[in-house]
Design a protein around this nucleic acid. Structure first.
Lengths: 218, 218, 218, 218
DNA sequence: TATGAATGAGTGTTCATTCAT
DNA sequence: AATGAATGAACACTCATTCAT
């Protein structure tokens, strides 16, 4: 009765350590990718900043590409979580869009590194390059889930596909914020948070009304 | 009377050939940078696609970085040219903004490759990387000129600096189009050209009215 | 009591290996530079001869230029060490010059590769080429130290500057030996070691007496 | 009677022009090789300095290696010519050595570029590199002829082979001058021309007396 | 004949990844 | 598990040489 419990405690201590190392690598990578760019940030830069041996990196991630994908997954995961909560909390269908946008804006204001990383990854995804394959899948999955989330609240708007609205929400929000954070700084944007939410909602509603007969390229 | 003319023809034939090769390299680079990304498109990819020897590239451009900058310069140059014409053609100050936006939208619809290249370059510019230095200079110069162009037509709006409006015009336009061309395709966006001009004008005017007390980071 | 010692042994094994690899690279480079010339000996030739991967070279030396400089520094360092010892051991001021020359001759007979490498580097140093910059600094530093070493023993000879004598010692010794080792072979020169010391001393003393009103170009 | 003469005149004009271009290339190459070094001076540097097209170089010389060899041949040819004259002018056998040395010193003072070029070429010749083959042959030929020239004047000295004396004359002279021109400047050495001749004669006579049982490596 | 645009083998260097310790 | 020394494929770039004009 003691042994197993001891083993469990020991294991969980090791396990906790592993989780911590994993997170440290991800955090450091996020920051470096944002500062220096995905290609210019070297694996060794990451392990050095995380105060780990270079080999350790490969104990946690199969490759540099993998950590990029994991970072994308984590970011989009957290983003979805917040979006889900926002949808739940919305008092009416009419307020869902604003709530969703607000959640996403808040996410990027909480993790501005992700703005620049997502900018780079969006650039990557559209390239005819192997590195892009896995990323596109992750991103598409996020859009799919986002679409499911907002579908109930959307009437039969002009947009043929809620999926298109989802991708527009994603693109507009991070596009707009990337630009403004870059030029006005994180703090200034934070202060005008509500303004940006309003602008985005208006733009997206306008998109909704117009309809666009788009074919989704994804 | 024949000799000199012949010589001239001969000379201009060689000269024309050089100009053509230069253009071919730029065109091919533009396409490959757009398709595969600036990082993944190798110099040899470019020369191969242009059906030239690898060394030839370096007769025309000092380095890979140089061709990226030249491409940026050329693109922004053409963009400015069209913008200038649009401002001249505008029948009133009130129509200048729409004209400018229209010119820029038309540019990107004419050279969609530039959308993706600019997206990448904008990503590059903000990085703390040597490669970014020269590019930022070129881009800033463009924004400065754009600001000069629209200044006369702008009253004293809420935006402290016309320069901020200029950078917003640049960022909003290519940001919006990048996204829509990617997801709806070039043709679909072309058809809705006027819609996008209207959307952009409205967003930018809204920005103008709001004012933002931004500090320009550039 | 065992663990730390084990760890220490383990660490020193790796450390020793590193030192060994470093030395192997330097040795191989010294030999190849001497045999094939600094220009014709390629980095890959060196790593191949050292039975290492090409990338390993750059873990130990920043560039090919660096290993040349390190080789020069090491050679001149050892040369200075032997010269210092010789000066200390000299029983009188009058014997210092002969002792210094003897030490330098012995050095080159012990490491004949350095004769040819120094010949090349001296050629390099005088060129108006970037590669020469760092080397000249190292060499000048050596001459400066050599001058300090012999100054106490030198009266006020006809040479305005002991520094000039130092550079003459350096140049005459390796110049003469380079030629004779090349034409008579290492062994033959070794046998006549004392003869060369005498010849060099006489030539240098003659230089001293003459005086030359030279301006030192270094 | 007219035609051939015309043809001859025309031909000789062209021929003269060719000779001139040839000489210009050689002169420019000599200077650049001396200034920047044989490897660092590019073929294009030479043609550019000579104000010729790059292709023209290859109309006159098969390769870069060829021009180096021609330069060596020309230099050694002129050197031999002057040496021959000096031997002829010598009033007695005893004065031949001094005359030969004087002629060679004067040559290098007239064409100091050759000092640095010969330094480099001597370095090259000893390398186990293909580029060295042809050069060694040219140099050896010069030494052979130099030996023939001085043989009559040499009694049966201690040197087993006059050939060894010849190579010593060649090496000592340019070795000593290279060093002194480099450190004291061309002008200073010119002023002390007679001193250097005396020093060299003494050193070489000392070599003669000693004998060395050397095996010639060439 | 003179040219210089074009070439591509060859070089130094980088960096993601592996693996012995 | 953690490490970091070692690796080598891959890349940007150079330059002697060729050849069409």
């Amino acid at each position: 009765m003691n042994k197993p419990s001891q083993a469990k405690v020991l294991l969980s201590r090791v396990a906790r350590r592993k989780v911590k190392t994993n997170q440290r690598l991800l955090e450091v990578a996020r920051q470096l990718f944002s500062e220096k760019g995905i290609y210019w940030a070297k694996v060794e830069d990451i392990t050095e900043a995380a105060d780990l041996g270079k080999g350790t990196f490969y104990k946690y991630f199969d490759s540099k590409e993998t950590i990029i994908r994991v970072l994308l997954e984590e970011g989009l995961g957290e983003l979805l979580l917040r979006t889900e909560q926002a949808v739940k909390d919305a008092s009416s269908d009419a307020k869902v869009l604003a709530a969703v946008i607000g959640a996403r804006v808040d996410f990027f204001l909480a993790y501005p590194d992700y703005l620049f990383i997502f900018h780079q990854i969006r650039g990557l995804m559209q390239l005819q390059v192997d590195a892009a394959k896995g990323l596109r899948e992750v991103y598409d999955n996020h859009l799919r889930r986002l679409a499911q989330l907002i579908r109930p609240a959307m009437g039969s708007g002009g947009v043929a596909d809620v999926r298109d609205l989802a991708s527009a929400i994603a693109a507009y929000t991070s596009g707009l914020l990337t630009y403004h954070v870059l030029f006005e700084g994180h703090e200034a944007v934070k202060r005008r948070r509500d303004y940006f939410v309003r602008v985005l909602e208006r733009s997206l509603r306008s998109l909704l009304k117009t309809g666009n007969g788009s074919r989704n390229l994804a």
